[in-house]
Design a protein around this nucleic acid. Structure first.
Lengths: 169, 169
DNA sequence: GCAATATACTAGGACATCCAAGGGTTTGGA
DNA sequence: TCCAAACCCTTGGATGTCCTAGTATATTGC
């Protein structure tokens, strides 16, 4: 990254699309590209805030998910489903969190195939602190107005439902 | 991935945030999380379409950028700035594209530090085909209505400008 | 003109994500 | 009952992204 560009590169791309006769899909292309770039910016902000805690976003998400589980423990496949990532990504995150003593693996009481992940006391404390930091420094300063936030939640919610993420609502 | 969840995990997270007394930032948290997930879905769609061409999204973006350059060539630092990715990411992409004979490196005529990337004829042809496929199968079926597309472009455009991506407009 | 600073690219390492494949466990139908 | 199919997790490989140097070339200031 570095210095700001004089012009919006995505708007330029949209004009290029239109100039080449793809005007019918130029706008969706621009919207999708903007989503990709926005995600990149937000992820960078989040990782910057989490770095002092020794966490990445992927690991934080797992900690946060566990902190909301009533029992404080979840099967790995459940975590994979709720976080919407590949099971191997969960394995990876748990490996590192376990090495940092923030979570612990334990065998499922009745299903020998399943591994439970559980927060340690240390992990629960760190999750709280990291959440407070993210709330204060990222979510609380998102830069989106309240109306925009509502609109994003609604539009992207519909998109995710149509994409097969979930059924109800 | 896999089977759809019975309920929206992001809406659940938002409720959890509210229940824990973080109601003031629960909505932005949900919006940001939705952006992250939407990016993931879109990227997966794009990569699926590009796979038959032997391209990834990162490599496609570089090809597309070059195909719009008047001279058909760009300095690597310029490509890095326009694509808004780290210079090393461009090096990585060029390495692979060069190995596939889709682009070629050439020295800058006057600046010995700079390397120019240029599309090969093969690269230009592939870029055209890949763009047609993406337009037909992703951008043309984004799932976003015209009003939503306009709104996304505007809201995310403001966000990106405020984040320092560009200045004008 | 020459040294100090800035710029451009590349090499190596850390992470995350996915896919493909493998080994162990459960389940369900013949 | 018993074996095949389904399921769960892990390992290994490929990609992409970033960061931190390191090397080479330009530019600037004295």
């Amino acid at each position: 990254m570095g210095t700001p560009l004089p012009r919006d590169p995505i708007a330029d791309a949209q004009r290029n699309w239109e100039r080449h006769g793809w005007g019918d899909v130029a706008a969706p292309m621009a919207a999708i590209t903007a989503i990709m770039r926005t995600q990149q910016i937000l992820l960078a902000r989040i990782e910057t805030v989490l770095k002092p805690f020794g966490l990445t976003f992927a690991r934080y998400e797992l900690l946060a998910l566990l902190s909301f589980a009533r029992s404080g423990a979840l099967p790995m496949n459940k975590a994979s489903a709720l976080l919407q990532v590949h099971p191997t990504s969960v394995t990876n995150a748990v490996d590192r969190l376990e090495k940092a003593a923030l979570v612990a693996r334990s065998p499922h009481p009745t299903d020998g195939r399943t591994t439970l992940i559980e927060l340690t006391a240390e992990g629960r404390t760190l999750a709280k602190k990291a959440t407070a930091a993210l709330n204060a420094e990222v979510f609380g300063k998102s830069g989106f107005g309240p109306d925009d936030v509502d609109h994003l939640i609604r539009v992207l919610g519909t998109f995710r439902r149509d994409a097969g993420d979930f059924t109800e609502e």
